[in-house]
């Protein structure tokens, strides 16, 4: 059998609170619609990866844990990953942005695809934004195609507020890009390499 050191367990009450507080603060109470029949699980392998798991999968994970060969140590993925917990803070990732994008009402629409290559979004890249945002807010990043089709690019934390955009120099960074961290969808291609 393949040896791993991974734990895949239901989140503790404290971990649950960290995640739920973040979701309520960033996305509002409506986000609980999607969380009502779900559980939060943690995959621990150095960092704590956070997964949203539905009731059916939760039962199966418990069944596997209680069988004669506990394969829960070998669970690579169950449900959907949304981010990580680090130093008692939840860190949203691109997969979480995808999962909750319906509730991410603060959106920034960009003119270029450079965010998908792990690069920064600067003032000059911004086409528009949907709602005013403050420094520190999480934003969903979208690109606008022809005939107004919108495609999700990723997520990021605003480094400046929307009220500063009109007066800021064009190279002011609004959202920082990360080549090796999963905030933009281009990460899928970089991750596979």
């Amino acid at each position: 059998m393949v040896k791993t050191e991974t734990l895949f367990i239901k989140a503790s009450r404290e971990e649950e609170q960290i995640v739920v507080s973040f979701l309520l603060k960033e996305f509002g109470t409506k986000v609980m619609e999607i969380m009502n029949d779900k559980s939060i699980f943690i995959k621990q392998r150095g960092v704590k990866e956070v997964y949203i798991v539905n009731e059916e999968l939760k039962d199966t994970i418990e069944f596997i844990r209680n069988s004669s060969l506990d394969l829960t140590k070998n669970i690579f993925l169950a449900g959907y990953p949304i981010g990580t917990i680090h130093e008692k803070q939840f860190q949203l990732e691109v997969t979480g942005g995808f999962y909750f994008k319906k509730y991410m009402e603060k959106r920034i629409i960009v003119k270029t695809q450079q965010f998908l290559y792990g690069k920064d979004i600067v003032v000059a890249n911004v086409k528009e934004y949907t709602l005013p945002f403050k420094k520190g807010n999480w934003l969903a990043v979208y690109g606008k195609g022809k005939k107004d089709s919108e495609l999700f690019y990723g997520v990021g934390k605003a480094l400046v507020g929307s009220n500063e955009l009109s007066s800021a120099p064009p190279n002011t960074v609004i959202i920082k890009g990360y080549k090796n961290r999963p905030f933009d969808l281009g990460w899928y291609l970089r991750f596979e390499k």
Binding site: V2, E56, L71, I75, A78, T95, Y188
Partner: peptide, 14 residues
């Protein structure tokens, strides 16, 4: 995750 699949458990074993 790219394809938005949410009903799956992946187990790394024989």
């Amino acid at each position: 995750i790219r394809m938005g699949v949410q009903n799956t458990i992946v187990i790394n074993t024989d």
